[in-house]
Each structure stands twice: as C-alpha cells, then as structure tokens.
Design a binder for these strands. Structure first.
Lengths: 213, 213, 213, 213
DNA sequence: TATGAATGAGTATTCATTCAT
DNA sequence: CATGAATGAATACTCATTCAT
C-alpha cells in the first residue's frame, strides 16, 4: 500500500542516490526552459524570440540552455513535438471507445476544443516557415484518423464504395483548420460553435440548386 | 505647323521626354527587383532571403534595392499586395456574369486553380509570422465573396432562412485552404480534383448514420 | 558716356560669344551649389549634410555637383576659403586708414560684428574635425593683424619693449573667440556688447589685489 | 563566532562571491573599451573611429562593445563626461583653500596645465559637431568658477560695483581657450607661458593711447 | 552641360554559440 | 551542473561617386 511503500522507499527500497537528485534537478531545469520557450515564442514568434529572452523567462543562465538543447531549432522542435503529441493524446482519449456512429461528431468536437486550447503551438509553427511542417503534420494526423473512421463506415456500407474517403477526410480537416488560422489573430469564432456548424454542413450538404455544373 | 505635326505624330510621337525614359528605366528596375524577390522568397522564405540574394537574382546593385524600397518588409508587403490583388482579379474575372446557380461551383473551381498557380505567394506569407495576415486576408476575401453568393441564394429561398451563411462560407473556404497548405510542401492533390470533391461533398453531405449526436 | 558705351558694347566691342553664355551659366550653377551647401551645412553640419541634400537645395542634379567639385571635401573647403576671405576683407575694409590709436578698438569691433554675421562658417568648420584648421586659420589672421598693430605701437614707444606682442595678440583673439563658440549654440551675447567689454578690460586690467602670486 | 571571524577576516576575506568576480571582469573590460576609444578617437576623431578600430585596440570582440555601450554615441559621451569630470576635479583640488587674492592666478595656472594634459578630450569633442557641447560646457564651468571668484572680490570692494563680472569671466576663459584650440594642432605654446601672459595682461591692461574711441 | 538611376564599399548592430570560472 | 561575459559571423542599410543618356 501507498503508506507502506513510501516508508520503505525512503532509505532502502529505491536507493535514492545523489544521481537521482541530480537527474530530477536537471529535468526540472529542462522543463523550465521548455515552458519558458513556449511562452516567449507563443508571444512573439519563433524567429523574434532570442535565447536570452527564453533563459530570462526561465530564470536560468544562457549557457544552461545549451546544456539541454543543441540550439534554438532543437528547442522549438521539442516544444512542437511534445505539444502536438499531447494535443493528439487529448483528442484520442476523448474519442476512444466512442461507437462508430458518434465517432465523427466526437472527433470534430474534441479537435476543435483541444486545438483552440493549444493554439499557441500553431502560432509558433506558423511564425517560422521552418516549422510549418508541424502544423501540416497535425492536420495529417487528424485526416488520417478521420480517414480510418470513414473507411470503417464504408466497410459497413454506411458510405458508398466509390467515395474518396481520404480527400473527404482532408476537407473536414480543412474546415476545422479554417478556425485554427482565424484563432492566430482573433479568439473568435468559439470552438464549439465551429464544431456544430461543421456537423450541420456534413449532415445536410447544400441545396442542389446552388451547385449546378 | 503644330496641327500638321500633331496629325503626323498621331500614335507614336507623344513628346517622349527624357523624364519618360528615366521613369521607364526606373520602373523596369523596380519590376526586376520585385520579380527577383518573389522568386528568391518563394524558394527559401521571406526570412532566409537576404537583400544580397535578391539583388543578385535581379542583377542589380544592393544600393539600387534601397532606391526602390525602404526595406525588406516593404518589398515583401508589395509582392504580397500586388500578387494577392492579381489573384483576386483573376478569380473575379472568371466568376463575373456567371448565373447564381453555377456561381458557387465556378468560384470554387476558379479559386482552386488560381491559388495553385500562385502558391508561392502563400509560401512567402507563411514563411514569416509577420505576413500571415496576407494569407488570412485572402481567405477573408474568398469567404466574403462566398457569403454574398449564399446570402443571395437565401434571399431567393434556395437556402433555409436560419442558416449562418457566414460560417458556412468560412467552412467552404477552409476546405480550399486545406489544399493551399498541402501545396506548400507537395504538389498534390491536383486543384481540379480538390474542387470536384468539395462540390461533391457540398452536394450530398454525409450519411446521417455517421453523424449521430 | 554710359549710354554710348552700352550701345557700342552690345554687338561688337565684346563679341559676346556663345562660350561666354556657357561660362556664365556654368558659373551661376557653381554659385548655386556653393550657396546651397553653405545653407545645408550651416543647418545640419558638414558631416550630416549629404550631396543629395545639397543638390536638392540648389535645384540641380546630383551629377551636376561632380561637374563642379571633385568631392564633398572640395566644396566644403571652397565654402570655407571663400567665406573666410570675405570675412577678412570685410574687416580689413573697416579698419583701413584708421589711425593707430583707434586701430585696436576698431579691429575688435569690426571683427565681432563680421564674425557674428558669418557664424555659420564657424559652425561648418567646427562640425567636422577635418575643417577646424579653417577656424584656427581665421584666428591666426586676426592674431597676426593685431600683432602688427601692437608692434607698430611698440616701435612708437606706446608699449614697453619687453612685451610679447604675439601672445598678447593671441589673448585678445581668444577673448573674441569666446563669443564665436558661444554663438554656435546661442545667439547671445550681442557682438557689440562683447567688443565693449573686451576694450574695457584691455583699458583697465584688473586690480592688483586680485592677482597676487 | 561572528566577531572572531570578522576579526580574522579583517582585510581580505570579504565573502568574495562569484558575482563579484564577474562584476570585476565586466568592469575591467568596460574600462579597456573606454581607454581604447579615447586613444583611437583622440588620434583620428570621433567620426572616423569605427567600432572595429576601438575593439581591436581594446583587444575584445566587436559584440563585446555592445554588451557595454548602446552605440558609438554612448561611448563618446561617456568618455567626455568622465574625462571632463576628472579635469574639473583636478583643477578644483588645486584651487581649493587658496586665499582670494591668489585664487584667480591659481585657477588660471591650474586650468592651463590640466587642459593641456587632457587636450585629447577637446580633440574628441571638436571632431564631431555633435559633441561640441562638451567643450562649451567645460568653458561654462570655468567661467562660472571665475565668476564666483570675481563676485566675491566685488563684494569685498576689490572690484568696482558696476563691472559685468560674468562677461569678464568669459573673456578670461576665452584667453585660456585660445590655447586649447592651438593645442589641437600644435603643442605650442607652453601652458605655463600662456598662464603667465594672461596674468600679466590682466594686471596691466594696455596703454590708453592704444585704445582711443 | 546637365541629369539622376545605379553602384558597392564600408559600418553599425544583432544574436546564436562558446568557454573559463 | 550552472553561469553569463565574450565572441564574431552575418546582414541591413547609407551615401559618395560614376556613367549612360
């Protein structure tokens, strides 16, 4: 049990060497730098943010930065990888175990919410052409996920066999992305409202009279 | 005599002063710089491109650059403004005089084509956080144009009165934009294919069975 | 007679060739540049003034400048030489034929007035370390002139034989110069007031009680 | 115990933190740059001196310069402020506690000596129109100091009540300044000789026969 | 002769990165 | 491991000077 464990751990069970302490301290510094970098870059972009800005925000020396990261590119890459991973995991956890007929709506809603909450990541990714790939990759992942859902539906005969589910998934992704880019400069529109409208459009399409060839 | 002269000169002999020659030369240089900047920035991004890169490509001296533009920001802004204006005009010319029932499809097709042809502009706009506004503005214009079309349709009763045509227009814009961002790194998918799929999705929507609440 | 002369001169007496016209025009342009340079440099200093500033003020092309002057240094040098020459001549004309006993006072008064009127020359000379020699030279000329006066006076026994008239002349020069430098930044004190005070000091010296060793 | 410790530590063992060391190193570099700048600017003027010249002379990197000074103007300003302050203090220390009847002579002699020793400062101040104010300010300080002395003398009745002691002080200042400007290009005349002559002139003035109106 | 567009050498300045302490 | 002073390569920008028209 917890209490027991704690007591036992103290001196003997996990030897708790001085190295552990060092490792913990090292990790704390590393996280402080990452967090500081995300704040500073989210505020002024990945290009404008200087190493000095970041270490000042993290309250460590400039040299310390280079003990943890090879260069500015590595820290940016790490922020984006970690952040995107977390974003993805958040969405996945909300969609897992949802039955197929609600999978699409759940995914759209979860993605809108999580993306809005992490819009600083996209701000960083778009602030330097070098890192746009991270934004594109996040879209790819969403598209891939949606593709799997649509494929499953097609297997079950819910969607006609001749549909290009890959591109369909891309277009749904694009609709969500419309708002991501809006959020870089405004806070509107509200993520839940966007999700509702996308679902609405997908449900009904538009009147044929509007879409003559 | 004056009259006689005038008549003889008719098409060609506008007095052709020395100032005209200067102005023409100036303009030629200016355009050479703009074109060079678009090429260089489109290739390596607005941040990485140096003034020296641009003037080398334009085959003029560095000082000449500053005779025509205050700084790098101004030349970038000019490229984007001119380019976006041209993009917009191209689309408009292809959509003008199209009857309402084909307006939506025509707009989607024209936008996909023209945007693909000018994807280097978006590459420049996204390569520096400073200029993303230009990409967002291009999307705004498209959304606004689509909004007008949808509003007209609603007035005629083709669309139900309670639809939020603004957000609808935004979502269609987002679908096109999905491809713009893809095009920054790949040349696929083909713009006409994208247009076709968007129109197809708008026509039919998705099966209700996939969109339970 | 005037009238006769004029008539005779017109076509024949001085042939008035086309070269004369060119020469006159050339000289007019040259003077326009010199005047413009004096105005611009007097306003913002010899270093800050650009060739473009000067030619804009003179309303000629930049290239024209180089048809008349080798470089910026030459035009500055010319302004200072011409100006200082004129300054010197002005003073000399007011002091010529003044009897010895009034020579010193007349020189001091004339110098204060003329220097004040041409203080922009000193502004130019002091604005670039390269041209300070011109200011020093103007002082030298004054000191030399004063030295001659004092030597004459010594020859006539008006001054004791053991006086160092050269240094004495320098000190009088220094007193005038005090104001020249003041005038670079203020317009006070009034030149005539300065002259009066210098003369007053020279007349009476200071009480011995103040100058113990 | 504390007391004991303190006693034992007495002269050397102030805790001597790592910050102290950093601060000392920083200060040493800063002084090296200041000294280098004074040497280089004194030699070739404040305009001609480049940052690279200064850092080469100081044997530090170019970037280091900007770690200590915002720009060339700031370093020049600092040199002139520090230097003028030191010049002023030197003179003041030699004049302090001198009785009134010798104050004037002592001030003149001390100023001539100290100014000669620091003539590079004036060389810098006059080499860029931007910094002439520093030379003018040094003259103002001398004039102010002399004014106070003369006012005291007037209070004691040593000088007639109707004298303009301010302008008188200015003229004495001007005489010293005559030599400062000479020293920018020559090393003559010797400062002590100048002082002696000024005092001599102030003692006797010039014969009235030379100063008729 | 006059013009002004074009030139490019020269400088100030920034900032990622290193290294002695 | 942590520090921050020092470094210098890289770049934007200026302006005296040239030269084709």
């Amino acid at each position: 049990m917890m209490t027991n464990d704690s007591i036992m751990n103290t001196p003997s069970a996990a030897p708790e060497t001085i190295e552990d302490r060092h490792a913990r301290r090292r990790e704390r510094t590393r996280q402080a730098i990452l967090e500081a970098a995300r704040i500073v870059m989210g505020r002024s972009g990945a290009v404008a943010a200087t190493i000095a800005d970041i270490t000042r925000q993290a309250d460590v020396g400039v040299g310390t930065f280079y003990l943890h990261f090879r260069d500015k590119e590595e820290v940016t890459r790490t922020i984006l990888m970690q952040g995107m991973e977390h974003l993805h995991a958040t969405i996945a956890s909300q969609v897992r175990d949802v039955p197929l007929e609600r999978s699409l709506t759940a995914t759209i809603r979860a993605t809108c919410d999580a993306t809005y909450a992490n819009r600083d990541l996209f701000s960083i990714a778009y602030s330097n052409g070098m890192f746009i790939a991270f934004a594109l990759d996040a879209r790819e992942r969403l598209a891939t996920f949606l593709t799997r859902t649509l494929e499953e539906a097609r297997t079950l005969g819910l969607i006609e066999a001749d549909q290009d589910v890959g591109l369909l998934a891309g277009l749904i992704t694009g609709m969500i992305d419309y708002s991501v880019l809006q959020w870089l400069e405004h806070t509107m529109p509200d993520p839940q409202r966007v999700a509702a409208q996308i679902i609405c459009l997908l449900r009904g399409g538009l009147p044929m009279a509007l879409l003559a060839d």
